[in-house]
Simulated scan of single mutants.
Amino acid sequence: MSHHLSGPNLRSPKGDARLDLTDLFVFPAAEPGRTVLIMNVNPFAPTQGEAFHPDAVYRINVDLDGDNRADLAYSFVFDAPHDGRQTVTVHRAEGADARSHEPTGPAVITGAAVDFGRVPSIVHSGGYRFFAGLRSDPFFADLDGIVNGFQWTGNDFGLDKNVFGIVLEVDDDELGPGPIGVWARVSLRQDGQLLSVDRGAHPSLTAYFNAEEVKDAYNAGEPADDWDAYREAWTAVLAHTGGYGQADAEAALRTVLPDVLRYDRSQPAAYPNGRTLRDDVTSARLAMVSGGKVTDDHIPPHTDLLTVFPYLGQAHAVAP
């Protein structure tokens, strides 16, 4: 999987698909001088959740100075769905406010309609371009082949799947002049407290590296703590799966720990420099964990991707 089913025992966090972060993407927009940020959730939408969770805070964090802490954050808060309709408010936070998991900062988009149809409704507000709703899942991988000892089946897990997409396009000036780091988080409000139940940036980390008993703690954690918390255990994984020595394992892990997706806009966007919807992240992760022994699962990118906003393909029809 990419980041799908990132709770313990290959289940969604809290057993709720609406809280399940599936993928994060960062790449240049079709319009020059702008950047696209996408977080997808709900790996089996809409059958395991017909709307975004109204008690959740969905968030994209941006590190502007390389310290693996948020300097800028966009929080997406959805109201309770009613008669098949739902709206969302987008908050923008800076500085210390961006490091809180709460939806702090001013609202830059208010009461935007969530789109559950097949034609995207796009919101333009204050230099932002925004969409939230049901779209096709861009993730492509031969999961059956991976599970069955790399005996490839040619079956693409994501070919007919949908997700709930959150797509925000911003001016580059909003993100400062230098490289940025990005990660996504989903938090749930329960008993008056906001608990981080999922977070991530790089694809297919928790599935390969995290033992079941640490997945909840990982999802609640902060990227700035990742290297100290997970270096030793993840080095052991690479030694087992790819025959790595310690120095080589640590060098490989430096590309994914802390779990922050770096994006230098002065260089072409291609994973791990950002991530486009066509990047073959499954093959990249297979090559990493196998020590170069397995380099391709032979599944191509999806053909329904758009070249313009919101970039995610039209949702697949869902059987009643």
Rank of each mutant, 00 (worst) to 15 (best):
P43C: 06
H316E: 11
G176H: 06
P223C: 15
D225Y: 14
T303H: 10
H124Q: 15
A269E: 05
Q86S: 08
P28K: 14
E94T: 10
V186Q: 01
I180F: 04
S75I: 01
V237F: 03
L19M: 04
V318E: 07
Y58D: 02
G7T: 08
S196K: 03
W227K: 15
D191F: 10
A98N: 05
D226P: 01
T87M: 11
T47G: 09
L21H: 01
H3C: 03
W183F: 14
D23R: 06
F78H: 00
P13M: 10
H3R: 13
G291E: 04
F25I: 03
I166L: 11
F78E: 06
P223Y: 04
F150M: 12
G133I: 06
D20T: 08
V119W: 11
L134P: 02
G154L: 08
G292H: 14
A287N: 12
L159H: 14
Y58S: 05
T153D: 11
L64I: 12
D16M: 12
F150V: 02
A51V: 03
H316Q: 13
A317G: 09
A217D: 11
T89P: 02
D171N: 12
L238R: 00
G165V: 11
V260K: 02
P81A: 11
R59P: 04
N162S: 10
G133Y: 00
D23S: 15
M288H: 09
V182D: 00
A80N: 08
N155D: 09
D304H: 09
I122Q: 07
E174G: 02
Y244E: 01
Q151G: 07
H101T: 04
P120H: 02
A96E: 13
V147Y: 12
F164H: 15
S6I: 08
A132E: 04
P138F: 03
L305H: 05
P301Y: 00
L195D: 12
G126W: 14
D144L: 09
A249N: 03
V318W: 15
T241Q: 08
G178V: 00
P138R: 01
F131H: 11
D171C: 05
N61V: 05
T110D: 15
I109N: 00
E94R: 13
A93W: 03
E213L: 07
K215P: 09
S266T: 12
R285V: 14
L253K: 00
F209K: 00
F76D: 01
D67Q: 11
A80R: 12
V237N: 06
N9S: 13
W234Q: 05
R199Y: 02
F131Y: 15
W227N: 07
H302P: 03
R185S: 13
S196Y: 08
E222Q: 15
A51C: 13
N219V: 02
Q193N: 04
D115L: 12
V119P: 02
I60H: 00
V214W: 10
I299S: 02
Y218W: 15
S290A: 10
